[in-house]
Design a binder for these strands. Sequence first.
RNA 1: GGGGCCGUAGCUCAAUUGGCUAGAGUACCGGACUGUCGAUCCGGUGGUUGAGGGUUCGAAUCCCUUCGGCCUCGCCA
Length: 628
Amino acid sequence: MSSLWAGEMPVAIHFNKRTHRNDELRAQHAGQSAILVGWVNSYRDHGGMVFIDLRDRGGITQVKFNPETDPKAHALARSLRNEDCVAVEGRVGLRGENVNPKLPTGEIEVEARALDVLSKSDATPFEIDDFTKANEDLRLQYRFLDLRRPSMQRVLRLRHDISKAVRDYFDQEGFLEIETPFLTKSTPEGARDYLVPSRLQPGHFYALPQSPQLFKQLFMVAGCDRYAQIVRCFRDEDLRADRQPEFTQIDLEMSFVDMDDVMTAVEGCVAAMFRAGRNIEVERPFPRVRFAEAVDRFGIDRPDTRFGLELTDVTEIVRGTEFKVFSGAIEAGGVAKCLCVKAAEGADKLTRKITDGLSEELKGIGAGGLPVTKVVEGQDGTELATGVAKFVQPVRDALCERVGAEPGDVMFFAAGPYNDVCKFLHHARTRLIEILQLKPSKPWELLWVVDFPMFEWDEQEQRYYSTHHPFTSPRDEDVALLDTDPAKVRAKAYDLVLNGTEMAGGSIRIHRRDIQQKVFKLLGISDEEAKEKFEFLMEALRFGPPPHGGIAFGLDRWVMLLADKESLRDVIAYPKTQRAVCPLTGAPGPVATGQLEELGIDLRPEVWAKLEQRPSGPDQHVHRKHDE
RNA sequence: GGGGCCGUAGCUCAAUUGGCUAGAGUACCGGACUGUCGAUCCGGUGGUUGAGGGUUCGAAUCCCUUCGGCCUCGCCA
């Protein structure tokens, strides 16, 4: 290579015989000889002495080139640039007074006797370190460089450690890891499917699995007893920071169990993940909260209970007030709830600007606004000031007593249908926690939400939907209600919530065919439809299915939280952008028309038109009408 | 599909009310320097201000269209 020292043959170092990784050498190794490989993280050329920081996936070791002792290696070292891939042979030396306390290997350096440039690097599009920031789009386009950064390497390692802990745990607990197909059948309910056209049967499509739900239930019918898999799932819906079109689930199913058995198994798995990821021992069992209570107190079925700001029902107190927003909503069958910010929580920071801003935000999600009032110390005791004060003044004492409000506090209200009120105040609560920068009572809070209703009534479509999914079992004591009052039936379902984020959801499944049929009927799924869509499950239920249940949790989200990252993209090696594009590969891309023909697929005229409009870049293959 | 933020040198950013040759740090190139460690010092290259159109004597700045990225609602376990 021309970049090698002119006239010299490259020094042949047996790079495949490296002796250490770059985070391993310590003072105790002083005097030993070592072969290291890696990338040039930085170089410092003093004219005389040359230093390079050599990086591999584990860490950094300083290498010293001395012109007096090793002129050849030194001369070559002067040509090194960032991200060159090199091998170094030398002696481990103590740094004496020049110890670098920032590096674990800072007590030593490798005094190079020989240097081999394995390959040169062009100037990188961004610098490979944790100091400089680069546009995320660029990072994803050059993900192989982005992943060289120590912080990304740490994430990959963390993810590996967590996955391994999960596998070890399930192995130990007697679970079998069995793979399920990716080319499978489209399921009717749930998210939009990713479809894969069939060549052998034109006009037919496989769907990529949204989850292995049915397959794992069949494993139970098959007598596998305990199944667990770390498996990729696919959902063709719009992306978010915490949502990718393909994501990884920890999926499990168990036979001859009830809710407690599954929950205990999951708690063990979560404990193993925390141990592996953060070296934290979590307290078990996790507390449980009933769905109805969670929604009542926090407005949401996945509450973050580490903060105060609980909701209080004030329907009866404000029922008769002059304020139409309250009285009208209540007369129409709605409720009124109050969220009280205590003085100690920083209620005085809630300026008019902030409360107005919150009100606007709430209008954005369908609220009429966010009525507010302040509790103040007046001449004759506690009084209300500003906002809706004059309307609620007549019920002031009852209101303050009910809510526990004291001078200095600020009260927010919402009135209307129960679900709306909860939704609005949950939003307000979440934002207030951010705005007031409230400190959580503890860093991690794991809790179970249980006793979900089986069904939710859809007012618009006048039909029931499954809260969980159609195979979820009702609680034994509620089975009779299926015939009389379906809305009251509680499900054997459980969600695991971490710091206000749903991290896992599962249920005990229906293992009796008659109950499954009854549930389908309630959901408006006809016998023919059930047979068509879930034929194999319905068939399986004929042949002695065991009582069973399971759960699935999103591995990506767990890694994200344990890695203190705010985006799933930071914990997935090759993630997609918001438009579900992979900047690295350019996927999705067009294909040759021949491929489409084989599949019996033709693009619609308007799709063609759009494709032809698009400026085709140098590396972009547009569908060609004539095959190449 | 709706709302919001953003796009200027390889990278991260600046550019006052629409006004002088669009600047800085870093990277890169050249030079100096024997203990640095996000090395330092001196010098240099580098710009279709995402793209297209418009308003104007004059546009990075204002308007329209479009492409791309992020956040979010809808959607989604």
